[in-house]
């Protein structure tokens, strides 16, 4: 980068702005005006002087359209002098009204504006110094400090035999399930299952391969999903019956991966993302902390009372 230190800084800020989605374009208007003032010192586009130039008009047209295409530029070229006068009038009117509103402190009354500006400042704090670059050691330290985040969700593979509560009643369904389980245990799986799969038609599937708990819960209900993920799996053996939201089930678990710790190498990308995010958050927190020091906060006695823990009183 060949520009001066000041230029580089502005550049970085502008790059930060560049990342802002268009939907914030209006919101960051105020910040942009300040930046423009820094970048192209046109004298006093402030206070009681309103400057009008091509760039300002283009931005004005673009912002009002909430769009970025080439129509604004084309339109500006094609405008008749009367239309340009009207556009300038509109621009000046908005500027004058805006500045007066600001002078009267109307922005302070408007929650939407307060929130947007606060978000814009937060965004600047987070991105002003570019994306932080971690060392591997920093990432390993971060991984070690947040090890709980980097665990694999458990998954299960199983088949089931379903006995419908609607068709047989809950007790009847449970009885049938127990009979079938006994038949499998005494006569063998092949003998019982080979001719015709016993039980009833289940609304979803007969076999589930490597599915997580939320999917199992959505098909069988949370209690049965909890049980399938917590019981001894007895791989390859029929067990049960288990009660779901719609009946009783015999289940043969083929495989169950327990929630496992993921090695650093397998999650390094995510660790890096999380680390970068944490750095940015720390910047925003630090920026706010510096800001906070400048303020003297006066909390009313009533609210102070409400802020105090009952136990401590």
């Amino acid at each position: 980068m060949t520009s001066s230190e000041k230029g580089g800084r502005i550049h970085r800020i502008l790059r930060g702005m560049q990342r802002e989605p268009l939907v914030h374009f209006l919101a960051v208007g105020l910040v942009l005006f300040l930046l423009y003032a820094l970048a192209n010192p046109v004298g006093a586009d402030a206070g009681e002087h309103i400057a009008v130039d091509r760039q300002r008009l283009l931005d004005f047209v673009q912002s009002r359209q909430a769009t970025v295409d080439d129509s604004a530029g084309k339109r500006l070229e094609k405008l008749t002098p009367a239309e340009v006068r009207a556009l300038v009038d509109e621009y000046v009117r908005e500027q004058a009204m805006y500045r007066e509103a600001e002078r009267l402190g109307l922005a302070d009354e408007d929650y939407l504006i307060r929130r947007r500006l606060a978000q814009s400042l937060d965004f600047l704090y987070r991105n002003m110094e570019g994306v932080p670059k971690p060392t591997e050691q920093q990432l390993r330290d971060y991984y070690a400090a947040h090890i709980g985040r980097y665990a694999a969700a458990p998954a299960i593979t199983f088949s089931h035999i379903y006995f419908s509560g609607d068709l047989h009643g809950w007790d009847g369904a449970e009885r049938l399930a127990r009979q079938t389980l006994r038949a499998i245990q005494t006569r063998g799986e092949d003998a019982v299952l080979a001719q015709r799969w016993p039980g009833d038609r289940f609304v979803y599937q007969l076999n589930y391969a490597e599915r997580d708990k939320s999917l199992i819960a959505s098909h069988f209900g949370v209690p049965m999903a909890d049980r399938l993920f917590s019981i001894a799996p007895h791989i390859g053996e029929w067990q049960g019956p288990f009660r779901s939201t719609s009946g009783w089930h015999l289940v043969r678990i083929e495989e169950r991966d327990s929630a496992g710790q993921m090695p650093f190498e397998a999650v390094v990308v995510q660790v890096q993302r999380d680390w970068v995010e944490a750095q940015k958050q720390a910047r925003a927190d630090a920026g706010y902390a510096r800001l906070r020091e400048r303020y003297d906060i006066g909390v009313s006695p009533e609210i102070r009372g409400m802020m105090t823990d009952k136990a401590a009183q």
């Binding site: 709980g148 985040r149 980097y150 665990a151 694999a152 969700a153 593979t157 088949s159 799986e189 092949d190 299952l193 080979a194 007969l206 076999n207 391969a209 490597e210 390859g236 043969r252 083929e254 929630a259 993921m262 397998a266 999650v267 990308v269 995510q270």
Partner: peptide, 28 residues
């Protein structure tokens, strides 16, 4: 809270369909 990440297995081949000795285990 963020869902824990899963392993990133790079270029892992699909598990080969292993012939199952049983008739009915519905191998995936």
């Amino acid at each position: 809270p963020e869902k824990p990440a899963r392993a990133q297995v790079q270029e892992a081949p699909a598990p080969a369909p292993t012939p199952s000795p049983r008739i009915y285990p519905p191998h995936r």
